[in-house]
Amino acid sequence: MFHWLEKHPFFFAVGVFVVIAFAGLIEIVPNFAQASRPVIGTTPYSTLEIAGRQAYIKNSCNACHSQLIRPFKSETDRYGHYSLSGEYAYDRPFLWGSKRTGPDLHRVGNYRTTEWHENHMKDPQAIVPTSIMPGYPWMFTTNADIDTAYAEQLTAAQFFGVPYNKPVPMKDGSTTVVKLGNSIAEAHAMALEEAKAVVANMKDQDVKDAVARGEIPEIVALIAYLNRLK
């Protein structure tokens, strides 16, 4: 049979394809059938948080940082509760990473603060003297791309049914609504409101001034995102 296949390239190719496609069908499709549902307390990302997430991706923080706490005593001691599938329900793309040159960040919002991130992102060695993390000072001067963040939210809502403007259940039994702007202008205004709350705890005068002018430096968005990782 194989000798025959080797003389009939078309059937050979079909044979190879069937053999390699088989595994995907069995391993991947079942998980899609039970698409990961959000755990209670997981909310869609706000405009500013998405902008921060985009900054995180743009700078490939995931090259050094994971966002996946494995169920080992040593990891839950260090980072907090092990990660649950439903916590990632709104993550497109997922950001688990595959290398921990730096620590896991899945719950960094629980034990680091705005001020800390501000200092650390500008110059990691000032906070952790032997850190090998690069500084990201340009994030303090480049503005976040709120338009694209808004477009991403719209895409998530329109193509994937992410529940913006709808009540989502919280752990304490209450519900929260994450609002999605009706227009670019409104999205900007909402992001700016959020940015003001973040900036209130920051020191950098240029960043504060920028927000006062109505701009949103990338660092503000990034910190909003890091703070939400809990």
Partner: peptide
């Protein structure tokens, strides 16, 4: 995507998001 106000072509045209989310994406 289109905004409720009817705006289209919003933001960076190069940007995209994955069809899959979270664990499925992984």
């Amino acid at each position: 995507a289109t905004s409720p106000a009817g705006e289209t072509n919003i933001g960076d045209w190069l940007h995209s998001i994955s069809m899959y989310a979270g664990t499925n994406d992984a």
